[in-house]
Design a protein around this nucleic acid. Structure first.
Length: 554
RNA sequence: GCGCCGGUAGCUCAGUGGAUAGAGCGUCGGCCUCCGGAGCCGAAGGUCGCAGGUUCGAAUCCUGUCCGGCGCGCCA
């Protein structure tokens, strides 16, 4: 499926080149052409698409925007679908779709079916997206919810434009936190108070009660490392619980990678050896350092502590190499913004290890502050004071939760009043969109009862009503919305698009009677049924990308 | 102190340097002879934190400043 906007951009570029070839545009020496941008004007009288190319070109060809616009218009070979091009001061080129062409596209949407809205990426890539990656020392909190939803949504959108995506969860299975978890379980089991820096949540008591006899015997044997043994057992149980929670959200990871496995498979030592051979490693103060400042970091980083233990960052080194070895062309890390301080050293590592740093992207998600009745709720697994993801879901449901987190830019901090969220979940716009979808389904059901079916043929030409036209035009924009989301790695525009389509459908429903009152209305009715089916398809596809259900009745 | 991210309607948030700054929720006022009223129509509500600058044009870019979040470990 091609994108109309991409075709228009190409047409404007061609007009520019044609004008230059005929000597009407004379570029300043060595000046590059500015990129052509196409936008959707805010006002209907400005058409369906507009470009500011003439203004952008003005300093390059040294002419007035209005004259440049005239020249561009003269050279413009329009793709099918554009009915009219006009010029507006100070030099906008406004393009309007041809109504007949628009009406005819409804059939094309239906024929594309579930694939409508996807655009084939210019270069499909094998992409690894790592997200959530919360350490398995306690259940997922609502704080982890954003990462889970946003990460999964990003994956769906990348898949939607043809990339091959692997969802990956990275977890820690042998550090001090896991040890503390083990000691906390032990304390609970023995009826002693949990250590000060241990884990105090109720789930620890549940774990303690569930320790199998053979594990307990092994852990408490003479000379055994109680904390490690219990910690490993407990963290695997917690990890499995996390996997179940995520599955309930519809977030399913393809690969679970433990930090321990990266070490066991030798990735860390090999990476450090490679860096040493390249001269990026030195010893100081008894520790082993990576000269990350040579690659733009603000200080060098320890990889092996003076006590011989590798740092967490050492694992990062090995993990990057491990990921690339698996054939990924692009790595995306979706991290909480509290990790932004570690981005520079990781980028340095990727470069120093010989990888294309541009092939690795670190996305930082702003924090979610949780508030109950105006008081902030801490999200500390250690103190046991947190709201679990499962609790949130039980209150507001996965569709509303996905919509809530999916409709915000990742850089925007969110203040979520948990009580307000519960109250407002009933008013969540997601239901408005789902309702529109159900309404489409209902109309199509009734039509089928009357032996009426959509007609993608000539009848579609009857769709000339403003409400019909506005709806089709918006439906046709879905490939552009999806392509933008994939390219910018920001997916929240999808929810706005869903709302717009639902609103336009409701306006169409209000103004245009779909089912016929008498036989003479049947051709128009069939055309409107086709539009209804197309709207339903687009809503289903967009909701599908969001991971939200599209009910036929509610 | 230094760095990163924010500050837009009562609230929660959109807004790739463009044309008269938007949506949802909330508030107020209307609409059920009619395909789903979880709907529709209308209204009120804004010094885009503040001050300079760049530009034909700034919520958007630059500088400064105030406020908030986060980060600056041989923690993860």
């Amino acid at each position: 499926m091609s994108s109309l906007r991409a075709d228009l951009r190409a047409a404007v570029e061609a007009a520019r080149d044609s004008a230059e070839a005929e000597g009407e545009f004379r570029r300043q020496d060595g000046a590059a052409w500015p990129p052509i941008s196409l936008e959707r004007p805010g006002r209907p009288e400005h058409g369906d698409y507009a470009t500011n190319a003439a203004m952008q070109l003005a300093p390059v060809v040294r002419d007035s925007p209005m004259r440049i616009a005239e020249t561009l218009k003269r050279h413009l070979g329009l793709p099918p679908g554009i009915g009219e091009v006009s010029i507006a001061p100070p030099g906008f080129l406004n393009m309007r779709l041809d109504a007949t062409w628009v009406a005819g596209q409804v059939g094309a949407i239906l024929e594309a079916g579930p694939t409508f809205g996807g655009v084939r990426a210019d270069h499909p890539r094998k992409i690894n997206v790592e997200f959530v990656s919360a350490n398995p020392t306690g259940p997922l909190t609502v704080g982890n919810a954003r990462g889970a939803f946003v990460g999964d949504l990003l994956c769906r959108v990348l898949e939607g434009v043809g990339h091959e995506v692997t969802r990956e969860y990275y977890f820690n299975d042998f550090n001090a936190q896991v040890l503390n978890l083990g000691l906390s379980v032990q304390a609970r089991r023995e009826g002693r108070p949990v250590p000060e820096d241990g884990y105090h949540g109720d789930y620890v008591a549940e774990l303690a009660a569930a320790v199998p006899d053979e594990i307990w015997a092994e852990a408490t044997a003479e000379g055994a490392d109680v904390g490690s043994i219990l910690g490993r057992w407990a963290s695997e149980g917690v990890r499995a619980g996390i996997e179940e929670s995520l599955a309930r959200l519809g977030v399913n990871f393809d690969v679970w990678t433990s930090e321990g496995s990266i070490h066991e498979q030798g990735w860390v030592t090999r990476a450090i050896d490679q860096l040493r051979a390249a001269g990026h490693i030195y010893e100081a103060d008894g520790a082993t350092w990576f000269r990350s400042t040579a690659f733009g970091d603000d200080k060098d980083r320890v990889v092996i502590r003076s006590n011989g233990q590798p740092t967490y960052f050492a694992s990062d080194l090995g993990y990057i190499a491990q990921k690339f070895s698996r054939g990924f062309e692009e790595l995306i890390y979706l991290w909480g913004e509290d990790h932004h301080g570690t981005v520079a050293r990781n980028r340095a590592a990727a470069q120093a290890l010989g990888f294309d740093a541009d092939a690795v992207q670190w996305m930082l998600m702003a924090w979610v502050r949780f508030v109950r009745n105006g008081v902030e709720i801490g999200m500390s697994k250690r103190s046991g004071e947190f709201i679990s993801l499962d609790e949130l879901l039980a209150e507001i449901g996965p569709d509303a939760a996905r919509w809530y987190f999916g409709s915000r830019a990742t850089t925007t901090g969110i203040d979520l009043d948990i009580e307000l969220a519960k109250k407002q979940s009933a008013e969540n716009p997601v239901y408005y969109v789902q309702y529109a979808h159900a309404r489409c389904s209902s109309i199509l059901r009734r039509a089928a009862d009357d032996k009426l079916a959509p007609d993608t043929g000539e009848a579609a030409q009857l769709l000339v009503h403003p409400a019909e036209q506005a709806l089709v035009r918006r439906l046709l924009a879905m490939p552009d919305v999806v392509a933008d989301a994939a390219e910018r790695r920001e997916t929240h525009e999808l929810t706005h698009y869903c709302l717009e389509v639902a609103q336009l459908f409701n306006a169409f429903y209000r103004d245009c009677r779909v089912l016929p009152d008498e036989a003479a209305e049947i051709p128009l009715s069939q055309a409107r049924l086709t539009l209804t089916a197309a709207a339903r398809q687009v809503l289903a596809n967009a909701l599908g990308l969001l991971g939200i259900s599209a009910p036929d009745s509610m």
